[in-house]
Each structure stands twice: as C-alpha cells, then as structure tokens.
C-alpha cells in the first residue's frame, strides 16, 4: 500500500464520519423515531388480532410475515438459494466423493480435534433448538440450517474430508436429504386443498399455502394438539415448514462445503465419474 493510498483511505474514513454527523444532525437518517411506518403498524396489529380479516394466526410477527403474508417471496428466495447450490454442483460435476478422491486425511492437531468432538455434538442441538422454536422466537428453519452447516464444515477442516468419505458421506445421500426437505416444503405448502379432498370435499374451504383454520376458511393445519394431558403448540404448518427447511438447508450447505473442500487435482482431472 503506497502512502498516497493510505492518505486516500484516511480521508475517506474521515469523510464517512463527517457524513454520519451531518446526516444525523440534519435528520436525514432515521434516528430512533417514535412512530412506526404504516406497514409495520399493520403487521404488528394484525398478526395477533383474531377478529381481523388479515389475522396471521401465528405467534411471531417475523415468521408470520415470512410464511403467511409474503409466502411466495420466501418460496422464491429459497429457490434462489437452491439454484446457487445446483449451480455449484454443476460446476464440479466431474468429481465424486470417494475415500481415494478425498485427499490425505491428515487433519489438524489433537487439541483442535478434541474440541471439535465436543462442538460437533452441541452445534446440531443448538440448530435444532433454533429451528424448533422458529414459530415462537426469532430464528427458524434457515437460521437453524445455517447453524447446523457449521458442524460438517468443522468436521471437514479439523478432521478431514477423507474421514467423512470413509464414514459414508456421499454427494448423492446429501442431495437426497436436501431434495426430500424441499419436496416436504412444497407438499406442506399446497396440502390444505388435498386435506379437503381427502375428507370428502364437505369439510369446508381451504386455500393453497393456508396456515391455520380461520373463520372464513375452516380447513387447515391445527394450531395446537393436545395429547395425554400435554398441549403442544406448533401453529399450523410453521413448525413443519421450519423442520423441512432445516433439513434442506443443512444438507445443501454440507453438500457445498464437501464439494468446495475436495482436492484441487481431483476437481481438475475429475474423479470417480464415468465419462
């Protein structure tokens, strides 16, 4: 870095600070306003309001906006993520994960390996907790899946990709889990009309991507179930969508980490795939 470049950086940093002072001082940026935007007020008031026509019927506003109000947005956003994974797989389609194509298998030091043995168990527990509470607290299937994805990454870096390959990981298995999760999301989203059809068509009205029974559409996944004195709240489809998303995202991330971690010469020459 030359001295001119360093000077340019310092000047632009000072300009950034000055810009912040001016922007806050002149009221150009929101500084903890006390009022809500109309859209935010609409969501906050309607999600919990059972007498409203636009009742969200789920116990958390952000999950409700994501899956109930803007469900199609979320579906396409998930589609973008999985298209990226498919694109990555296509770029590396010549390399197959086998013990002989998975590198040396040396791994890192004993200290790192011991710590990884502990965290490899705790990370999936935290991920499951995030995903299973997705309809009650901030977080959800994608966040849980992204947390889960750290566990295979740790295994690959601390131990080796070869260990994973020897324990039976393969691109096909991970792809199967990912596809099953995606299929489950799709089937749950369109399930309500099929439930009506299964009940003989007399049960009432239900819509595609409907979450819970409402006063104007009586069919839907139940809000909670009571069994043997215990009442478990799962707010319609939300818990199952979160679970399916957890499986799909964690398997997809593990797939990408596996592919990216493969040795360069295997990626260059291709390994294990019949031409």
């Amino acid at each position: 870095m030359s001295s001119e470049e360093a000077l340019a950086i310092i000047v632009s940093l000072a300009a950034a600070a000055l810009l912040a002072v001016v922007a806050v001082g002149q009221g150009l940026v929101p500084v903890a306003s006390t009022d809500l935007t109309p859209l935010a007020r609409f969501y906050l008031l309607n999600v919990y309001n059972g007498s409203s026509q636009l009742w969200g019927a789920s116990p958390e506003v952000i999950t409700s906006i994501l899956w109930d109000y803007r469900g199609l947005d979320t579906v396409y956003e998930t589609a973008v993520f999985f298209l990226a994974i498919i694109a990555t797989l296509t770029l590396f389609r010549d390399a197959k994960l086998l013990p002989e194509t998975a590198g040396s298998g040396r791994g890192m030091t004993v200290i790192v390996k011991t710590v990884t043995r502990i965290t490899f168990v705790t990370i999936p527990i935290i991920a499951a907790s995030i995903a299973l509470h997705g309809h009650l607290t901030p977080g959800g299937g994608f966040q849980g899946g992204a947390a889960f994805g750290v566990a295979p990454l740790l295994l690959i870096t601390a131990f080796s990709l070869r260990l994973a390959a020897e324990r039976g990981w393969s691109k096909g298995k991970l792809l199967t889990v990912r596809t099953a999760g995606l299929l489950a999301i799709g089937l749950i989203a369109v399930s309500t009309p099929y439930i009506i059809a299964a009940l003989g068509g007399k049960a009432g009205i239900g819509y595609v991507m409907q979450n819970q029974p409402k006063a104007w559409a009586e069919v839907g996944w139940p809000y909670a179930i009571a069994y043997a004195g215990m009442r478990v709240l799962f707010s319609g489809t939300l818990l199952f969508l979160n679970l399916a998303e957890l499986f799909a995202v964690s398997a997809g991330l593990a797939l990408v980490f596996t592919v990216i971690a493969m040795p360069t010469e295997v990626l260059e020459k291709g390994g294990g795939v019949k031409k």
Binding site: Y43, E60, L136, P138, V232
Partner: peptide, 11 residues
C-alpha cells in the same frame, strides 16, 4: 416483535 407470554404450550 414477539408478543410476550407465549410458551410451547400456552398462548
């Protein structure tokens, strides 16, 4: 933005 007082069983 989460309505307080909900648990897995009570709402």
């Amino acid at each position: 933005p989460v309505y307080p007082g909900q648990t897995y069983t009570e709402w």
